[in-house]
Amino acid sequence: MLRRLRQGLDAIYFGCGVIAAAFLIAMLGIIVAQMIARWTGLVFPGAASYAGYCMAGASFFAFAHALNRGAHIRVGILLNAAGRHRRWLELWCFAVGSVAAWFLARYAVNLVLWSRKLGDVSQGQDATPLWIPQMPMAIGSVVFAVALTDHLLQIVFAGDHGIRSDTAQQSRAE
């Protein structure tokens, strides 16, 4: 049961990384389309806003995947200096991070709900309903909060957060 849960969570984190990559590709496509529109004298209303929405979506969807892969900036020097107290310091960091992430997730979801309820639209020529570009932020925030809580629970019950750092950090830590 726990093994399936672990595989499922890892698949969700990886899937979020794939979605983040798709947002980056979409952002590239929008920027190229905007360049072509300028060269040909056409207008692409809202292109800068759409590229910004894609960048935000890529960032928020990448959070959980990056955490799971050890790509987030962590204070490795401080953790290594903690010595035998390293587990307690990591426990504290993941607890504070989890609380902050759930706080962000709550407000991100509320932002989407209120934007939809109020019919809020962007200020540009495109007048995009804002709940649509806010949705990736809300989903990414919730998945990131789940990931932080997941790694916190791994420290509590397994004694290790399960994050495998990139090769350069790992070789220095060993």
Rank of each mutant, 00 (worst) to 15 (best):
R3D: 08
D10T: 05
G15S: 14
V18I: 13
I19T: 05
A21K: 09
A26M: 13
G29I: 02
I30E: 02
Q34M: 15
I36L: 11
R38P: 00
R38G: 06
G41C: 07
G41L: 04
A47D: 11
A47I: 06
M55G: 05
S59K: 01
S59V: 04
A64P: 04
A64F: 11
A64K: 03
H65V: 08
N68G: 07
R69V: 07
G70V: 04
A71D: 01
V75G: 08
G76F: 10
G76S: 14
I77H: 08
A82L: 14
G83E: 15
R84S: 12
R87T: 02
L89N: 00
E90A: 12
A95M: 11
G97Y: 06
V99I: 15
L104M: 07
A105D: 07
A105T: 09
R106V: 10
Y107M: 13
Y107F: 15
A108F: 12
V112C: 14
S115V: 05
L118W: 03
G124D: 14
G124P: 09
D126I: 09
L130N: 02
P136Y: 03
G140P: 00
V142A: 13
V142Q: 08
V143P: 00
F144M: 11
A145D: 02
H151C: 06
F157N: 08
A158F: 15
A158I: 06
S165T: 04
T167I: 13
Q169K: 11
S171P: 02
